[in-house]
Design a protein around this nucleic acid. Sequence first.
DNA 1: AGTTAATCGAGACGGTACGTCAAGTCTTAAC
DNA 2: GTTAAGACTTGACGTACCGTCTCGATTAACT
Lengths: 190, 190, 190, 190
Amino acid sequence: MVEASGRGRPRSESARAAVLHAVDDLLVEVGYAALTMKGIAERAGVGRQTVYRWWANKAEVLYEASVIDAQQELSVPLSGDPVRDAKAYLDALVRFLTRSDAGTAYRALIGEAQHDKDVAALLDSRDVLADSAAKVVEPLRDGVGTALPPDRATDLLIGPVFFRVLSGRGADGIDTEALAEQFLRALRTG
Amino acid sequence: MVEASGRGRPRSESARAAVLHAVDDLLVEVGYAALTMKGIAERAGVGRQTVYRWWANKAEVLYEASVIDAQQELSVPLSGDPVRDAKAYLDALVRFLTRSDAGTAYRALIGEAQHDKDVAALLDSRDVLADSAAKVVEPLRDGVGTALPPDRATDLLIGPVFFRVLSGRGADGIDTEALAEQFLRALRTG
Amino acid sequence: MVEASGRGRPRSESARAAVLHAVDDLLVEVGYAALTMKGIAERAGVGRQTVYRWWANKAEVLYEASVIDAQQELSVPLSGDPVRDAKAYLDALVRFLTRSDAGTAYRALIGEAQHDKDVAALLDSRDVLADSAAKVVEPLRDGVGTALPPDRATDLLIGPVFFRVLSGRGADGIDTEALAEQFLRALRTG
Amino acid sequence: MVEASGRGRPRSESARAAVLHAVDDLLVEVGYAALTMKGIAERAGVGRQTVYRWWANKAEVLYEASVIDAQQELSVPLSGDPVRDAKAYLDALVRFLTRSDAGTAYRALIGEAQHDKDVAALLDSRDVLADSAAKVVEPLRDGVGTALPPDRATDLLIGPVFFRVLSGRGADGIDTEALAEQFLRALRTG
DNA sequence: AGTTAATCGAGACGGTACGTCAAGTCTTAAC
DNA sequence: GTTAAGACTTGACGTACCGTCTCGATTAACT
């Protein structure tokens, strides 16, 4: 994620793609804990320095490798029906956090961010989760005319699922329809 | 965290205390990322093998070192007034997650659990957060006679704060009173 | 190899035997390099301290465990015929150094003695090799009435075989009869 | 002791020299028993991996560090006079085995080779002792026209001194002139 | 066309933590 | 006071990855 300019050999786009691809593969194959810069470079058939030149650490590579997928998986078509839309988003969120590779990457990054401020800053710079939710929350807020600020509304929508999944209890027992209704009720009276 | 039989030299209680103490100190001084088994042993003035004999990894030591504090910090006296009790718990939760050393440890462990199933199992074995919330949620559920199962009620109570803090936005802008009211409303109509 | 006396529980003879037996077995099974005090104690079903109480290091145990066998294997009946007796001894020596368990132990100890003066002192205290050779060399010296001192005669007898085996070239190509004759010739004219 | 291909950063000659120098120093300072790969690396100011990359164990480093010195110390100028040349070699041999640092290294390696077949193979690959003796023995064999094969002649020449020194009795009492004469007599009639 | 400069893959560099192993010592209860 | 058991501190083991560096080779843009 560094800009280059002027003369000299230009950045190899194929090397960049190979690295991102390698990270995607390795995350699935060996998991985040066993993911190393060395391993990424070797898998990508790329020099170690080449990876370090463009990304500062494995979190940055992983972030860039999964952010596009994450955005797609968390974007849901809106129908206009509040409960339906809220539920649709929650379903996408559950699927993302518990079954998607991009979600696995996201959970790993959130985890790392708890004890690495560089990673925290990285996630803060473009928070796909909050952004995706905002797109759903805005129309709903407009619809019910709530006084609740957008980010707090987002906390209410995402929080329960987020806590359940990250505290290790998986997706079983999540009733997204009930959560959608509870969210909308809180929105109205907030 | 292993039982010893009668024979042989008994486990040294002073060594155990020194290790737990060292972890406490080091977490504050160098942070979780720079916390190493080697560093813990040296700081505690204890053999490396002694640490490995009783704890499998740094997560286990840290967990044992902070679980007592966590329980204390998350236990709040109940008044019987629903909004007041819910708010009191949320205030304790915010303080724990954002300002307490035990909370820092807890966030680090939750983070590690996202990509280390041993740590996930460790946290699952005795989830201080869910346990502490259950003590508050139970009376409230009884009071309003809700149909919502206890663990889902806990998700609603903890989730919003948990998401906000772990996604890196700190405690500012959290209105625990409003959250308490929203939670109770969801409980009543859930 | 330490004396105990007076009151208290007497030294367990069965423990001593178990240790020596264990060393014998382990030398064959795992070799000298992998022979450890810990392993010896466990194999003997004996406390670690018990081993240390009576022998200072694994060289002492090994020495005591193999010295009797070594003496037996290196003692040959004398016929009175010089060439025959010298050859008989050299045959026994070759067999001892290359095929016997006690010889393996002896070579290991000689090796260790090159960089451990405790082991060197141990071997010096009762040198089975020189002692056994002396019994053969004495009558031969008397027979030919040589001026060569006994220990130098022993060097001439043992040296060539000793060098060949310890420098890693085994027993093949050793002509003990020729060596016996050459030794006697040196003795006569020394 | 590994060849490098054209690609990549070339092997650091200064690191190699530093390691060999460190081994030389440490052998004298702490002795072979206390010589460790860790200690060598630290003394050389070199990463541990760098040592392991080029040498498999401390024996290999020590061998490479002392083989040149050993060859020099064991090479004697030949005069053509048999007794004088044999004596000159034996004097060099005694000096090498009992007083030289390279000789200390050699004795330690011979010792280790008795219970470590890797070290045995290492010594076998280029046996400085036998090689150096061969250069002296060959002319002597030619001179007397013996039927004794070269390696057996070498055993006769080296053996007595080798046995005496390695069995811990030092150099005192070695009469190299007498040994030289005895050796030549054996050669003539062998 | 030649020069300059930044890239590329490769792989060695000094560091440092890993988790294991054995060393030799110490502390129990049992005898 | 010895025994077996087993925890203790110490410290080396050999491995892995860190992030940096140094090669030869390549690939543009600027002379």
